[in-house]
Design a protein around this nucleic acid. Structure first.
Lengths: 151, 151
DNA sequence: TCGAGTTAGTATGTTGTGCGTACCATAATA
DNA sequence: TATTATGGTACGCACAACATACTAACTCGA
């Protein structure tokens, strides 16, 4: 161990200059949230993205992939992969759009609906864990700040 | 909603219930930051994680991988992969620790130092973009909030 | 001092995501 | 009609997170 002699000067805990970087804190926070999410959703085996997508599909039945991507700010190719996974699990289905031959409309299957029910419960726990770190007013402020970043 | 033609009721823009979820906003914000970071650092070809790690190694010369992981909250196997990439680029080197045979101490090469210099410039631009969305006081508040999440 | 348990590093493999590129079919338009 | 734009798809690459398993080195208690 770095004894008393001055040779080993490993800063014990600090993050140094990184601590000033806003982007860095966002990454760390996101990571922490991601980890807790994964834990909470371990039984379901769904990721954040998958739940978000599933959620939005249920919310807006017959939505197309492109719109999905637009709202969640996800690349066309990436949303494709996510929907594929959801589909191969039997949670969503694709069908042809009547009005536009290029489009595929997405909808939730009963199994997907069930998964979403469970996801809702898990998410309540997850959100409570997260929000418990703040007062309700602070939550509002924080969401407002974050919206400024991603809007 | 579907006032005009009735059949297609795709909510125009909203995120529905998702909009209430704090975790969801963190994800979106993180994503936006990630994208801008990638753009800004395109020339360098370094990721957020790589820069963070490089930075910390320079900051604390002879740090071990484990300590790195502890500070950045990154898994042992994951930090391994990151350091490998950095090493194969010639940005960092490993050497045996004198005091503990299990440990590898990490240090920056001149090439790594150069890369960090450029990263510093790129990061200034990136941070300015990010922080320009807030007043200095708000930045402090935000960092404080984020720290609560990841600490 | 010996042996059990812990810690650091490593290798390997899987999963999910993000993005680039290319291709095709179908609109939309000039 | 010819051209361009759009939506979906396939393929491939790079990264990251994590699990598992193994070795070597250290620590500590009986």
């Amino acid at each position: 161990m770095g004894d008393t002699a001055g040779t080993k000067t490993i800063p014990e805990e600090g993050l140094g200059a990184l601590d000033e970087i806003l982007g860095f804190h966002i990454r760390l926070a996101h990571n922490a949230v991601y980890r807790h999410f994964t834990e909470t959703f371990a039984d379901l085996g769904l990721t954040q993205k998958q739940v978000s997508v599933l959620w939005l599909i249920e919310d807006s039945d017959d939505i197309a992939q492109t719109d999905l991507g637009r709202r969640l700010q996800i690349d066309r190719a990436t949303i494709m992969a996510i929907v594929n996974r959801l589909q191969s699990r039997g949670y969503v289905e694709r069908s042809q759009s009547k009005t536009d031959g290029r489009r595929q409309t997405l909808h939730i299957t009963p199994a997907g609906h069930d998964a979403l029910q469970k996801a809702w419960t898990a998410n309540r726990i997850h959100e409570e864990w997260l929000k418990s770190k703040f007062t309700p007013e602070e939550v509002d402020v924080l969401i407002n700040f974050l919206r400024r970043i991603h809007d």
